[in-house]
Write a protein that binds this DNA or RNA. Sequence first.
DNA 1: TTCTCTGCAAACGCTTTGCACGGAT
DNA 2: ATCCGTGCAAAGCGTTTGCAGAGAA
Lengths: 142, 142
Amino acid sequence: MNINNVDIYLRDQGIKPSYQRKRVLEHIIEHHDHPTVNQIYDALICEIPTLSKTTVYNTLNLFTLKKIVEIITIEGTETRYDLFNPKPHAHFKCDKCQIVYDIDLDFSKIANEDLKNYIVKDQYIHFIGICPSCSKKGIVQD
Amino acid sequence: MNINNVDIYLRDQGIKPSYQRKRVLEHIIEHHDHPTVNQIYDALICEIPTLSKTTVYNTLNLFTLKKIVEIITIEGTETRYDLFNPKPHAHFKCDKCQIVYDIDLDFSKIANEDLKNYIVKDQYIHFIGICPSCSKKGIVQD
DNA sequence: TTCTCTGCAAACGCTTTGCACGGAT
DNA sequence: ATCCGTGCAAAGCGTTTGCAGAGAA
Protein backbone atom coordinates (compact mmCIF):
# COMPACT_ATOMS: atom_id res chain seq x y z
CA MET A 1 0.00 0.00 0.00
CA ASN A 2 1.17 3.52 -0.71
CA ILE A 3 0.29 6.11 1.89
CA ASN A 4 2.05 9.36 1.11
CA ASN A 5 0.45 11.50 3.74
CA VAL A 6 -0.53 9.74 6.93
CA ASP A 7 -2.39 12.80 8.13
CA ILE A 8 -4.68 13.01 5.12
CA TYR A 9 -5.04 9.24 4.95
CA LEU A 10 -6.32 9.00 8.51
CA ARG A 11 -8.68 11.90 8.02
CA ASP A 12 -10.05 10.19 4.91
CA GLN A 13 -10.80 7.14 7.05
CA GLY A 14 -12.68 9.29 9.51
CA ILE A 15 -9.97 9.08 12.15
CA LYS A 16 -8.53 12.06 13.95
CA PRO A 17 -4.82 12.02 13.18
CA SER A 18 -3.38 12.35 16.66
CA TYR A 19 0.37 12.19 17.03
CA GLN A 20 0.22 8.72 18.60
CA ARG A 21 -2.01 7.33 15.86
CA LYS A 22 0.17 8.75 13.12
CA ARG A 23 3.31 7.29 14.66
CA VAL A 24 1.73 3.85 15.06
CA LEU A 25 0.56 3.87 11.45
CA GLU A 26 3.94 5.09 10.22
CA HIS A 27 5.65 2.33 12.15
CA ILE A 28 3.48 -0.31 10.51
CA ILE A 29 4.02 1.22 7.07
CA GLU A 30 7.79 1.33 7.53
CA HIS A 31 8.15 -2.11 9.11
CA HIS A 32 6.92 -4.99 7.04
CA ASP A 33 7.86 -7.51 9.70
CA HIS A 34 4.35 -7.79 11.13
CA PRO A 35 5.12 -6.38 14.56
CA THR A 36 3.43 -7.28 17.82
CA VAL A 37 1.96 -4.66 20.15
CA ASN A 38 5.09 -4.86 22.29
CA GLN A 39 7.38 -4.33 19.33
CA ILE A 40 5.46 -1.25 18.28
CA TYR A 41 5.38 0.05 21.83
CA ASP A 42 9.11 -0.53 22.37
CA ALA A 43 9.94 1.17 19.10
CA LEU A 44 7.88 4.27 19.86
CA ILE A 45 8.45 4.71 23.58
CA CYS A 46 11.83 6.36 22.90
CA GLU A 47 10.36 9.19 20.90
CA ILE A 48 7.01 9.30 22.76
CA PRO A 49 8.04 8.80 26.41
CA THR A 50 4.49 9.26 27.69
CA LEU A 51 3.09 6.59 25.34
CA SER A 52 1.01 3.94 27.04
CA LYS A 53 0.36 0.42 25.83
CA THR A 54 -3.35 1.10 26.17
CA THR A 55 -3.05 3.72 23.45
CA VAL A 56 -1.25 1.27 21.18
CA TYR A 57 -4.03 -1.27 21.79
CA ASN A 58 -6.75 1.34 21.28
CA THR A 59 -5.14 2.52 18.08
CA LEU A 60 -4.63 -0.95 16.63
CA ASN A 61 -8.17 -1.98 17.50
CA LEU A 62 -9.47 1.14 15.80
CA PHE A 63 -7.29 0.51 12.74
CA THR A 64 -8.46 -3.11 12.59
CA LEU A 65 -12.10 -2.00 12.73
CA LYS A 66 -11.48 0.46 9.91
CA LYS A 67 -9.63 -2.22 7.92
CA ILE A 68 -6.45 -0.19 7.89
CA VAL A 69 -4.53 -3.03 9.47
CA GLU A 70 -5.21 -6.73 9.87
CA ILE A 71 -4.42 -9.21 12.60
CA ILE A 72 -2.09 -12.09 11.83
CA THR A 73 -2.27 -15.05 14.17
CA ILE A 74 0.74 -17.32 13.86
CA GLU A 75 1.54 -18.50 17.31
CA GLY A 76 -1.38 -18.47 19.67
CA THR A 77 0.27 -16.15 22.13
CA GLU A 78 1.26 -13.30 19.88
CA THR A 79 -1.04 -11.01 17.94
CA ARG A 80 0.77 -9.46 15.04
CA TYR A 81 -0.36 -6.60 12.84
CA ASP A 82 0.15 -5.67 9.21
CA LEU A 83 -1.29 -3.18 6.80
CA PHE A 84 -4.56 -4.54 5.49
CA ASN A 85 -3.89 -6.41 2.27
CA PRO A 86 -6.97 -7.47 0.28
CA LYS A 87 -4.83 -9.57 -2.06
CA PRO A 88 -4.78 -13.26 -1.06
CA HIS A 89 -1.47 -14.13 0.53
CA ALA A 90 0.09 -16.42 3.09
CA HIS A 91 2.61 -15.80 5.84
CA PHE A 92 5.94 -17.42 6.57
CA LYS A 93 7.55 -17.15 9.98
CA CYS A 94 11.25 -17.86 10.23
CA ASP A 95 12.25 -19.99 13.20
CA LYS A 96 15.63 -18.28 13.38
CA CYS A 97 15.14 -14.56 12.85
CA GLN A 98 11.45 -14.57 13.88
CA ILE A 99 10.57 -12.35 10.95
CA VAL A 100 7.18 -12.90 9.33
CA TYR A 101 7.18 -12.66 5.54
CA ASP A 102 4.30 -12.28 3.11
CA ILE A 103 4.07 -15.03 0.51
CA ASP A 104 2.09 -14.56 -2.69
CA LEU A 105 -0.25 -17.47 -2.90
CA ASP A 106 -3.42 -17.94 -4.84
CA PHE A 107 -5.91 -19.53 -2.48
CA SER A 108 -8.26 -20.47 -5.29
CA LYS A 109 -5.85 -23.22 -6.32
CA ILE A 110 -6.43 -25.11 -3.13
CA ALA A 111 -10.20 -25.03 -3.22
CA ASN A 112 -10.90 -28.71 -3.48
CA GLU A 113 -13.51 -31.45 -3.33
CA ASP A 114 -13.52 -31.66 0.44
CA LEU A 115 -14.47 -28.01 0.76
CA LYS A 116 -17.19 -27.89 -1.86
CA ASN A 117 -20.10 -27.87 0.60
CA TYR A 118 -18.54 -25.31 2.88
CA ILE A 119 -19.11 -21.58 2.52
CA VAL A 120 -15.66 -20.10 2.97
CA LYS A 121 -15.53 -16.52 4.25
CA ASP A 122 -11.92 -16.30 5.30
CA GLN A 123 -8.81 -18.35 4.74
CA TYR A 124 -5.49 -18.30 6.53
CA ILE A 125 -2.27 -20.02 5.59
CA HIS A 126 0.99 -19.84 7.36
CA PHE A 127 4.29 -21.62 7.19
CA ILE A 128 7.02 -22.10 9.76
CA GLY A 129 10.60 -22.77 8.78
CA ILE A 130 13.81 -21.09 7.72
CA CYS A 131 13.80 -18.03 5.48
CA PRO A 132 16.18 -17.67 2.49
CA SER A 133 18.28 -15.08 4.30
CA CYS A 134 18.89 -17.31 7.33
CA SER A 135 19.53 -20.45 5.29
CA LYS A 136 22.04 -18.53 3.16
CA LYS A 137 23.90 -17.56 6.30
CA GLY A 138 24.46 -21.26 6.81
CA ILE A 139 22.64 -21.30 10.11
CA VAL A 140 22.00 -24.94 10.83
CA GLN A 141 18.48 -26.15 11.15
CA ASP A 142 17.85 -27.84 14.46
CA MET B 1 -6.49 -42.94 14.87
CA ASN B 2 -7.64 -46.17 16.43
CA ILE B 3 -6.93 -46.60 20.09
CA ASN B 4 -8.67 -49.68 21.42
CA ASN B 5 -7.23 -49.71 24.88
CA VAL B 6 -6.38 -46.34 26.34
CA ASP B 7 -4.62 -47.99 29.26
CA ILE B 8 -2.21 -49.97 27.12
CA TYR B 9 -1.79 -47.10 24.66
CA LEU B 10 -0.66 -44.67 27.35
CA ARG B 11 1.69 -47.24 28.87
CA ASP B 12 3.22 -47.77 25.41
CA GLN B 13 3.90 -44.04 25.24
CA GLY B 14 5.66 -44.19 28.58
CA ILE B 15 2.82 -42.44 30.41
CA LYS B 16 1.27 -43.71 33.62
CA PRO B 17 -2.39 -44.23 32.84
CA SER B 18 -3.97 -42.34 35.72
CA TYR B 19 -7.75 -42.06 35.76
CA GLN B 20 -7.62 -38.35 34.83
CA ARG B 21 -5.25 -38.90 31.92
CA LYS B 22 -7.33 -41.75 30.56
CA ARG B 23 -10.52 -39.72 30.72
CA VAL B 24 -8.91 -36.72 29.00
CA LEU B 25 -7.59 -38.96 26.22
CA GLU B 26 -10.93 -40.72 25.87
CA HIS B 27 -12.69 -37.40 25.60
CA ILE B 28 -10.42 -36.29 22.79
CA ILE B 29 -10.84 -39.62 21.01
CA GLU B 30 -14.62 -39.48 21.28
CA HIS B 31 -15.02 -35.82 20.37
CA HIS B 32 -13.68 -34.81 17.01
CA ASP B 33 -14.70 -31.19 17.52
CA HIS B 34 -11.24 -30.05 18.59
CA PRO B 35 -12.16 -29.06 22.14
CA THR B 36 -10.61 -26.29 24.21
CA VAL B 37 -9.26 -26.91 27.70
CA ASN B 38 -12.47 -25.49 29.14
CA GLN B 39 -14.65 -27.76 27.06
CA ILE B 40 -12.72 -30.81 28.20
CA TYR B 41 -12.80 -29.62 31.80
CA ASP B 42 -16.54 -28.90 31.72
CA ALA B 43 -17.25 -32.28 30.18
CA LEU B 44 -15.26 -34.20 32.77
CA ILE B 45 -15.98 -32.26 35.95
CA CYS B 46 -19.36 -34.03 36.30
CA GLU B 47 -17.84 -37.46 36.53
CA ILE B 48 -14.58 -36.35 38.21
CA PRO B 49 -15.76 -33.72 40.72
CA THR B 50 -12.26 -33.25 42.14
CA LEU B 51 -10.72 -32.57 38.72
CA SER B 52 -8.68 -29.40 38.48
CA LYS B 53 -7.95 -27.38 35.37
CA THR B 54 -4.26 -27.64 36.22
CA THR B 55 -4.48 -31.37 35.69
CA VAL B 56 -6.15 -30.89 32.32
CA TYR B 57 -3.40 -28.46 31.34
CA ASN B 58 -0.68 -30.78 32.67
CA THR B 59 -2.17 -33.71 30.81
CA LEU B 60 -2.57 -31.89 27.51
CA ASN B 61 0.94 -30.48 27.70
CA LEU B 62 2.25 -33.97 28.35
CA PHE B 63 0.22 -35.39 25.46
CA THR B 64 1.44 -32.61 23.17
CA LEU B 65 5.04 -33.33 24.11
CA LYS B 66 4.52 -37.02 23.38
CA LYS B 67 2.82 -36.17 20.07
CA ILE B 68 -0.40 -37.85 21.17
CA VAL B 69 -2.35 -34.65 20.59
CA GLU B 70 -1.64 -31.49 18.65
CA ILE B 71 -2.53 -27.86 19.22
CA ILE B 72 -4.78 -26.11 16.74
CA THR B 73 -4.67 -22.33 16.73
CA ILE B 74 -7.62 -20.78 14.97
CA GLU B 75 -8.56 -17.74 16.94
CA GLY B 76 -5.75 -16.27 18.96
CA THR B 77 -7.56 -16.61 22.26
CA GLU B 78 -8.46 -20.26 22.20
CA THR B 79 -6.10 -23.21 22.17
CA ARG B 80 -7.81 -26.28 20.76
CA TYR B 81 -6.62 -29.85 20.86
CA ASP B 82 -6.98 -32.81 18.57
CA LEU B 83 -5.46 -36.25 18.26
CA PHE B 84 -2.13 -35.92 16.51
CA ASN B 85 -2.65 -36.44 12.81
CA PRO B 86 0.51 -36.81 10.71
CA LYS B 87 -1.52 -36.65 7.49
CA PRO B 88 -1.60 -33.15 5.99
CA HIS B 89 -4.95 -31.51 6.55
CA ALA B 90 -6.59 -28.16 7.09
CA HIS B 91 -9.22 -26.98 9.53
CA PHE B 92 -12.55 -25.31 9.00
CA LYS B 93 -14.28 -23.42 11.77
CA CYS B 94 -17.99 -22.77 11.40
CA ASP B 95 -19.05 -19.27 12.38
CA LYS B 96 -22.46 -20.53 13.45
CA CYS B 97 -21.99 -23.78 15.36
CA GLN B 98 -18.35 -23.08 16.30
CA ILE B 99 -17.40 -26.63 15.39
CA VAL B 100 -13.95 -27.15 13.91
CA TYR B 101 -13.80 -29.69 11.10
CA ASP B 102 -10.85 -31.45 9.52
CA ILE B 103 -10.48 -30.91 5.78
CA ASP B 104 -8.40 -33.24 3.63
CA LEU B 105 -6.03 -31.04 1.75
CA ASP B 106 -2.80 -31.82 0.01
CA PHE B 107 -0.35 -29.09 0.94
CA SER B 108 2.05 -30.08 -1.81
CA LYS B 109 -0.33 -28.58 -4.36
CA ILE B 110 0.22 -25.11 -3.00
CA ALA B 111 3.99 -25.25 -2.93
CA ASN B 112 4.76 -22.45 -5.35
CA GLU B 113 7.40 -20.21 -6.83
CA ASP B 114 7.30 -17.70 -4.01
CA LEU B 115 8.19 -20.36 -1.48
CA LYS B 116 10.99 -22.04 -3.37
CA ASN B 117 13.83 -20.51 -1.32
CA TYR B 118 12.14 -21.12 2.00
CA ILE B 119 12.67 -24.26 4.05
CA VAL B 120 9.19 -25.19 5.20
CA LYS B 121 8.97 -27.21 8.41
CA ASP B 122 5.32 -26.77 9.24
CA GLN B 123 2.27 -25.52 7.42
CA TYR B 124 -1.11 -24.48 8.76
CA ILE B 125 -4.28 -23.75 6.87
CA HIS B 126 -7.61 -22.83 8.26
CA PHE B 127 -10.88 -21.59 6.93
CA ILE B 128 -13.69 -19.66 8.55
CA GLY B 129 -17.22 -19.81 7.22
CA ILE B 130 -20.42 -21.83 7.33
CA CYS B 131 -20.37 -25.61 7.47
CA PRO B 132 -22.63 -27.79 5.29
CA SER B 133 -24.81 -28.71 8.25
CA CYS B 134 -25.52 -25.08 9.19
CA SER B 135 -26.04 -23.90 5.62
CA LYS B 136 -28.50 -26.76 5.05
CA LYS B 137 -30.48 -25.57 8.05
CA GLY B 138 -31.01 -22.36 6.12
CA ILE B 139 -29.29 -20.28 8.73
CA VAL B 140 -28.61 -16.98 7.05
CA GLN B 141 -25.08 -15.83 6.71
CA ASP B 142 -24.53 -12.43 8.27
C1' DT C 1 -18.31 24.15 26.55
C1' DT C 2 -18.34 19.77 24.66
C1' DC C 3 -16.28 16.00 22.77
C1' DT C 4 -12.81 12.55 22.60
C1' DC C 5 -8.01 10.98 23.00
C1' DT C 6 -4.66 9.58 26.29
C1' DG C 7 -2.74 6.88 29.86
C1' DC C 8 -2.79 5.11 34.59
C1' DA C 9 -4.58 1.41 37.39
C1' DA C 10 -7.35 -2.31 37.90
C1' DA C 11 -9.72 -6.16 36.03
C1' DC C 12 -9.90 -10.16 33.11
C1' DG C 13 -9.16 -14.69 30.84
C1' DC C 14 -6.06 -18.17 29.80
C1' DT C 15 -2.02 -20.62 31.14
C1' DT C 16 1.90 -21.75 34.07
C1' DT C 17 4.29 -22.28 38.50
C1' DG C 18 5.07 -23.44 43.47
C1' DC C 19 4.02 -26.43 46.67
C1' DA C 20 1.94 -29.76 49.83
C1' DC C 21 -0.86 -33.79 50.18
C1' DG C 22 -1.81 -38.45 48.95
C1' DG C 23 -1.59 -42.64 46.37
C1' DA C 24 1.22 -46.01 44.00
C1' DT C 25 5.48 -48.85 43.82
C1' DA D 1 10.62 -44.67 51.91
C1' DT D 2 10.62 -42.84 47.46
C1' DC D 3 8.49 -41.24 43.48
C1' DC D 4 5.24 -38.82 41.05
C1' DG D 5 0.39 -37.32 39.88
C1' DT D 6 -3.07 -34.20 41.58
C1' DG D 7 -5.11 -29.94 42.70
C1' DC D 8 -5.21 -25.65 45.32
C1' DA D 9 -3.59 -20.97 45.33
C1' DA D 10 -0.85 -17.62 43.45
C1' DA D 11 1.69 -15.65 39.80
C1' DG D 12 2.38 -14.40 34.88
C1' DC D 13 1.22 -12.55 30.53
C1' DG D 14 -1.36 -10.30 26.99
C1' DT D 15 -5.38 -7.67 26.49
C1' DT D 16 -9.47 -4.96 27.86
C1' DT D 17 -12.07 -1.82 30.83
C1' DG D 18 -13.04 2.18 34.00
C1' DC D 19 -12.11 6.49 34.68
C1' DA D 20 -10.09 11.09 35.32
C1' DG D 21 -7.43 14.60 33.33
C1' DA D 22 -5.73 16.99 29.13
C1' DG D 23 -6.35 18.75 24.66
C1' DA D 24 -8.75 19.85 20.45
C1' DA D 25 -12.86 21.94 18.13
